[in-house]
Simulated scan of single mutants.
Amino acid sequence: MSERYSDYQRLKFDRPSERVLRITMDNPGRLNSADSVMHGELVRVWRDIDTDPDISAVIICGAGEAFSSGGDLDLVEEMSKDFHTLTRVWKEARDLVYNLVNCSKPVVSAMDGPAVGAGLVAGLLADVSIASRNARIIDGHTRLGVAAGDHAAIVWPLLCGLAKAKYYLMMCEPVSGEEAERIGLISLVTEQEELHDRALEVAKKLAAGSPTAIRWTKYALNNWLRMAGPTFDTSLALEFMGFNGPDVQEGLKSLREKRKPDFDKDCPL
C-alpha cells in the first residue's frame, strides 16, 4: 500500500483488484461513527486519491455490519460547547463535500446497515451508490436539533425530488435500501450477501474504462452539484448555527437514552 495512506487511523485500505482502492471506515464498537479523527480523514482522503496515479476507481464501505452511524456524539457535544471545535468541523464538513465532488476518480459506495451523517455524505455523493436491502439510510440532523444542511440540501432534491427530500429530511425517517432505489436516492440495491461483490464488479468496470472519458463525464455531471454551491454554503451555515441553539442538548440527551444496550458507545439512530 502506498505511503500516502500509511498514517490513516480510522480508514483502512486494501486493493481488491488492479487499480481499485477500497476504503473501509472502521471505528470499532461505535458502528463506524465519525469521531474527530475519522471526520478529518474523510476530508483529506479524496485529495490523496485524486493525485494517486495507481488508482482508477474507489470503493467506500464500512467495517462489520454498518456503513457509518454518523457523527460521534462526543464530538457533537464538544461542538456544541467549544467554538473552535465547531468552526473546525464546519470547515471540514464543507471540504468533505467539495473534495469528494471534485475528486477525478469514480467512487462506488457499498452501504450496509446504518448509513448516517458524515459517512452518508460519501455514500450518497459517490458516483455509483449501492446499498443492501437492509441498509438504513437516515439524515439525522433534525433529530439532533439542527437544520438538515450539509450535503443533503444539494443532493437529495436532485436524486429523489423535492417532495421526497422534504419528507425524509424534515421527518428524519429511515429509508431502506429497497425504497432508496425505488425513489432514485441510490443507484442500485442488492441482497446483503452480494453487496461487496457487486460494488467490486462495478469498480472493476470503471477502472477498466477510459479514464479520460469517465473523469470528464463525472466532472460534467457534477456541475449540477457545483451550481448548487450557494445553496450548500447557506444550508451548512444554518446547520452549524444550530449547534449553539436550544435544541441540541435535548437532542443529544434523547439520542444517548435511545442507544442500544449492545452498543459499546452512543449511536445516533
Rank of each mutant, 00 (worst) to 15 (best):
Arg4Trp: 06
Tyr5Ile: 14
Ser6Glu: 10
Arg10Cys: 04
Leu11Ile: 00
Lys12Gly: 01
Lys12Gln: 01
Pro16Cys: 01
Pro16Arg: 07
Pro16Ala: 01
Arg19Cys: 13
Arg19Pro: 12
Arg19Asn: 15
Arg19Thr: 12
Leu21Pro: 15
Arg22Met: 02
Arg22Asn: 13
Ile23Val: 09
Ile23Ala: 03
Thr24Ile: 06
Asp26Gly: 05
Asp26Cys: 08
Asn27Gly: 06
Ser33Val: 10
Asp35Ile: 05
Ser36Asp: 11
Met38Ile: 08
Glu41Ile: 05
Glu41Arg: 13
Val43Arg: 06
Asp48Thr: 10
Ile49Arg: 02
Asp50Ala: 04
Asp52Cys: 06
Ile55Val: 15
Val58Leu: 06
Ile59Tyr: 05
Ile60Gly: 03
Gly62Leu: 13
Ala63Phe: 06
Glu65Val: 14
Ser69Lys: 14
Gly70Lys: 03
Gly71Ala: 14
Gly71Phe: 05
Val76Lys: 08
Val76Leu: 13
Glu77Gly: 09
Ser80Phe: 04
Lys81Ala: 11
Lys81Phe: 08
Phe83Cys: 07
Thr87Val: 12
Arg88Lys: 15
Val89Lys: 02
Trp90His: 15
Trp90Ser: 15
Lys91Glu: 14
Glu92Met: 14
Ala93Val: 08
Val97Glu: 07
Asn99Arg: 01
Val101Met: 12
Val107Gly: 01
Val107Glu: 04
Ser109Gln: 02
Asp112Cys: 10
Val116Gln: 05
Val116Asp: 00
Gly117Lys: 06
Ala118Asp: 13
Leu120Phe: 10
Leu124Lys: 03
Ala126Tyr: 00
Val128Asp: 03
Ala131Thr: 09
Ile138Cys: 08
Asp139Ser: 02
Val146Phe: 03
Ala148Thr: 01
Asp150Phe: 11
Ala152Met: 02
Ala152Cys: 15
Pro157Asp: 02
Pro157Ile: 03
Leu158Asp: 01
Leu158Asn: 04
Gly161Thr: 00
Gly161Cys: 04
Ala163Gly: 08
Tyr167Glu: 13
Tyr168His: 08
Tyr168Pro: 01
Tyr168Glu: 00
Leu169Gln: 04
Met171Val: 11
Gly177Leu: 02
Ala180Asn: 05
Arg182Trp: 11
Gln192Cys: 09
His196Gly: 08
Arg198His: 12
Ala199Glu: 07
Glu201Pro: 10
Lys204Trp: 07
Lys204Thr: 15
Lys205Asp: 14
Lys205Thr: 11
Ala207Ile: 11
Ala208Asp: 12
Gly209His: 10
Ala213Pro: 09
Thr217Ser: 12
Lys218Phe: 00
Lys218Thr: 03
Tyr219Gly: 09
Ala220Pro: 08
Asn222Tyr: 10
Asn223Lys: 03
Leu225Tyr: 04
Leu225Gly: 02
Leu225Met: 02
Arg226Met: 05
Ser235Trp: 04
Ser235Lys: 01
Leu238Ala: 12
Glu239Cys: 06
Gly242Asn: 06
Gly242Ile: 02
Gly242Pro: 09
Pro246Gln: 06
Val248Cys: 08
Gln249Trp: 07
Gly251Trp: 00
Gly251Gln: 13
Ser254Leu: 14
Glu257Leu: 14
Lys258Phe: 08
Lys260Ser: 05
Pro261His: 03
Phe263Leu: 04
Asp264Thr: 15
Cys267Asn: 15
Cys267Glu: 14
Pro268Thr: 08
Leu269Val: 15
